[in-house]
């Protein structure tokens, strides 16, 4: 079993909901980002920015696991790479070694509280009991492994049952994120990777990331993937649907 994720850039509406969901799920400090949405400007004049959601790739051959001098970064049997913050010494070698730069060191200035200069809110205090976010250590996305473990214990299937699925996947209103078992050829992620010719970021590093991307513009760009115009049309259609819904909801007021 190896958990993995497919990010469909054609469907992604760049709404930042996955980032917000992660922040809420893990009570992330102000300066901490586990997933990010990066913006890429093409050389074509007038063309809109392309944004791509990125997060820890949970690499099969993770450099961060190899370089950690304290063995604080560990890889589970299901492929999830996580940091044990009770062991991490904060040397930041993992941050340097990650070619995808998907790790963040939690320094004091990145954790000023949601209202700097004031006492932490009850929400923050409650969150810290669940996720301590130790200052002086490194953090990163762990595919919401607590949700996966709790879900599996209840007999649920991660990727299918919401309770056992990462928060970002659950919250994605465009269904651009798909989660599942990469080792299962019948799983939705495996099918998507095969059918849509999904690609990994920088496969030449030999890290074998567990996060795949589907897109018609960048990467392998096979002919069966929608070209850029269609992607934009897809976005516009989705946004107009959202607009309609908003009118239905708020128009009644």
């Amino acid at each position: 079993m190896r958990w993995g994720m497919v990010v469909n850039l054609i469907k992604c509406t760049r709404c930042h909901a996955c980032i917000a969901a992660c922040r809420i799920e893990h009570f992330l400090p102000m300066g901490m980002n586990w997933p990010r949405l990066i913006a890429w400007e093409t050389d074509v004049p007038g063309e809109e920015l392309t944004t791509i959601p990125v997060r820890c790739n949970q690499c099969k051959d993770a450099p961060c696991v190899e370089v950690c001098p304290a063995e604080a970064t560990k890889k589970r049997e299901d492929g999830i790479v996580y940091v044990d913050n009770d062991i991490c010494v904060g040397c930041r070698y993992c941050i340097i070694a990650c070619p995808y730069q998907n790790r963040t060191f939690l320094s004091r200035d990145k954790d000023p509280g949601y209202f700097p200069g004031y006492e932490r809110t009850r929400f923050e205090k409650a969150g810290r009991k669940i996720y301590p976010h130790t200052v002086g250590t490194t953090e990163k996305c762990d595919f919401c492994m607590e949700r996966i473990d709790a879900g599996l214990a209840k007999g649920l299937v991660p990727g299918k049952d919401r309770e056992a699925t990462p928060a970002c996947v659950n919250t994605c209103q465009a269904r651009a994120l798909t989660f599942g078992d990469l080792d299962d050829p019948e799983s939705e992620v495996s099918k998507l990777i095969k059918e849509k010719n999904a690609f990994q970021l920088h496969p030449e590093y030999g890290t074998d990331p567990s996060v795949y991307y589907i897109d018609g513009k960048i990467g392998n760009a096979p002919s069966n993937i929608a070209p850029r115009e269609e992607q934009t049309a897809s976005h516009m259609q989705h946004l107009s649907t959202m607009e309609e819904r908003a009118k239905q909801i708020f128009g009644k007021k």
Partner: peptide, 29 residues
Amino acid sequence: AYFGKPWRFYRTLPPFSNAWKTSWFARGI
């Protein structure tokens, strides 16, 4: 002193860690 958690320095050494097998940082220490 650069470490975020300097007092955990001992954790980079055997028997607390066997990272020297893969990590040049641990080997260096």
